[in-house]
């Protein structure tokens, strides 16, 4: 039982981290903060993958330079490392795309709070309905 708890504690920690990230994304209205939350979420996923690749008593998957590989040395699984390595760089690319969107939103709406943007959108829609409504016989 004790062994089970220790062996799974890391997964639980990652779940907690992931949920913190999700909470920031869902509950906070500020768009920059939402992106930080997404980053936390994604880092938690990375950790989950990397922790799967770990083998107890293993070492980093880099052979000696002369390529005389000792068969007794245990190497951790390199495949998750590769996947996550590429995922991190894709992550920063998408993050920057999101930040660029935030900058554009700020220029259009002059705010980066989700609620304010919703208000402005609603006002725009109401105004449009009124202007079009007059042309269509007074019904919005």
């Amino acid at each position: 039982m004790w062994e089970f708890i220790v062996g799974h504690l890391n997964y639980w920690l990652f779940c907690v981290l992931m949920m913190t990230g999700l909470y920031i994304v869902v509950a906070r209205g500020n768009l920059v903060k939402k992106i930080v939350g997404l980053n936390i979420f994604q880092t938690a996923v990375f950790m989950l993958y990397i922790s799967m690749g770990k083998i107890a008593g293993g070492t980093a998957p880099i052979f000696p330079t002369d390529m005389n590989v000792d068969p007794n040395v245990v190497y951790s699984n390199p495949l998750p490392h590769v996947l996550i390595l590429t995922a991190i760089v894709v992550g920063i690319a998408t993050t920057s795309l999101g930040l660029a969107l935030v900058v554009r939103i700020r220029e259009e709406y002059d705010t980066i709070e989700e609620e304010d943007i919703l208000h402005i959108e609603r006002d725009i829609v109401t105004a449009e309905n009124q202007s079009h409504g007059g042309a269509m016989g007074g019904r919005a």
């Binding site: 990375f46 990397i50 998750p80 390595l85 760089v89 920063i92």
Partner: peptide, 23 residues
């Protein structure tokens, strides 16, 4: 700690470097 030196390298360079600057 989990033997992923390449990933750690990338995370330190990307996460602490570039993304902080961009934000």
């Amino acid at each position: 700690n989990m033997d992923a030196v390449d990933v750690a390298f990338t995370e330190a360079a990307v996460g602490a470097g570039i993304s902080t600057v961009l934000m």
